[in-house]
Design a protein around this nucleic acid. Structure first.
Ligand SMILES: [Zn+2]
Ligand SMILES: [Zn+2]
Length: 315
DNA sequence: CGAGTCGGACGTTCAAATAG
DNA sequence: TATTTGAACGTCCGACTCGA
């Protein structure tokens, strides 16, 4: 049996629109990864049925793998990342015989992988020609309509999702860390699993924004005059760019598209794309109370929290 | 070339933990 | 009570594809 892992066109588009995700990202907590179906493996059969018949998928869903490792206990963000990647690797091995795998990856790594190494196994030439890839997906009925019954997702499926084996080795985040300039590549590296083809280094031009009229859209420019706050250098990092500014609440359309939103309603992007009437604030989760945490690191005399000024290079 | 997709780097929030 | 910590959560960059 052939298996399909990953997003890209085959796994990602229609399912994503319908609130179902092929595979999750690698980190927890991102909106789509927690609210969508965290599937470590999506049988190609299932995808085809969703795309075409849309009837027998319920029985197939019952056969969906439910044995997913429990969420790892993480103490720091990087721990969280790394622990999850380990879980990913273990989970992947558990579910997939990589030798039989003929499709892998997401929009970035997976597509490059298909194009490069898996040309023969590409879905356009090999599997389901036309039915899947060449379908004009915006006109496909959403899966939520195809699935008439209410699906009671098994509890086990609500666990972690599986990423693409990338480990973040960068600096810590949060509390005033600035945005790493693209292609700087100094402080963060990507280490990959052996089976994953990293796309070649390329393209340092940026897609011409043209949304840069509102202040929200030009907030990423260096603009050294505006804020002195941004000139504070984080500890031990050489040079990071200006902090990337985010809107407090993206509209549902921009959120779904992972595109930049602004604070106006309708937002500029929705106006441009004719979705102004559906432009509304996305809902945010309520944080639960009473959840115990581990001990924090001691404040004052503790080691390792010193701002080593002498290491900051002076120009 | 425009639009859709999505992994994951980066930013934000806010309750728990700690200091005073 | 005030301040700090840090895990959970949110945003959206940029690499990529497809269709016109
Ligand atoms: Zn928006
Ligand atoms: Zn909008």
């Amino acid at each position: 049996m052939n298996h399909c892992i990953g997003g890209g066109y085959l796994g990602g588009s229609t399912e994503h629109t319908a609130g179902l995700q092929t595979t999750g990202g690698s980190l927890y907590g991102r909106t789509r990864h927690t609210t969508l179906l965290p599937a470590p493996l999506r049988p190609r059969e299932l995808v085809r049925h969703w795309r075409t018949e849309g009837e027998e998928q319920l029985s197939l869903l019952n056969e969906y793998p439910t044995k997913i490792p429990p969420r790892p206990q993480a103490t720091t963000r990087r721990d969280e990342d790394e622990a999850q990647v380990e879980e990913s690797a273990a989970g992947m091995e558990e579910f997939v015989n990589w030798g039989e795998l003929d499709f892998f990856g997401g929009a970035s790594s997976g597509d490059a992988y298909r194009r490069g190494e898996l040309g023969a196994a590409n879905i356009r030439s090999g599997d389901e020609p036309g039915e899947v890839t060449n379908a004009p997906y915006p006109r496909l009925p959403p899966i939520s309509q195809l699935i008439t019954a209410n699906i009671d997702w098994p509890q086990e499926v609500a666990g972690p999702t599986f990423g693409y084996g990338q480990v973040y080795h960068g600096q810590g985040r949060g509390h005033g860390y600035a945005h790493t300039p693209p292609h700087a590549g100094s402080s963060s590296t990507i280490s990959s699993m052996p089976f994953l083809m990293i796309p070649p280094e390329s393209s340092d031009e940026s897609p011409t924004g043209s949304l840069a009229d509102r202040s929200d859209y030009q907030s990423n420019s260096p603009s050294p005059s505006t804020s002195a706050i941004l000139s504070i250098t984080p500890p031990s990092s050489g040079s990071r760019g200006p902090k990337r500014r985010q809107v407090k609440n993206a509209c549902t359309n921009c959120q779904r598209a992972c595109k930049k939103c602004d604070s106006a309603r309708p937002c500029l992007r929705c106006v441009r794309y004719g979705t102004a009437e559906t432009c509304m604030d996305s809902e945010r989760k309520q944080r639960p109370r009473g959840v115990k945490r581990g001990p924090y690191k001691k404040r004052g005399g503790g080691e390792g929290s010193k701002l080593s000024v002498e290491h900051v290079t002076n120009f």
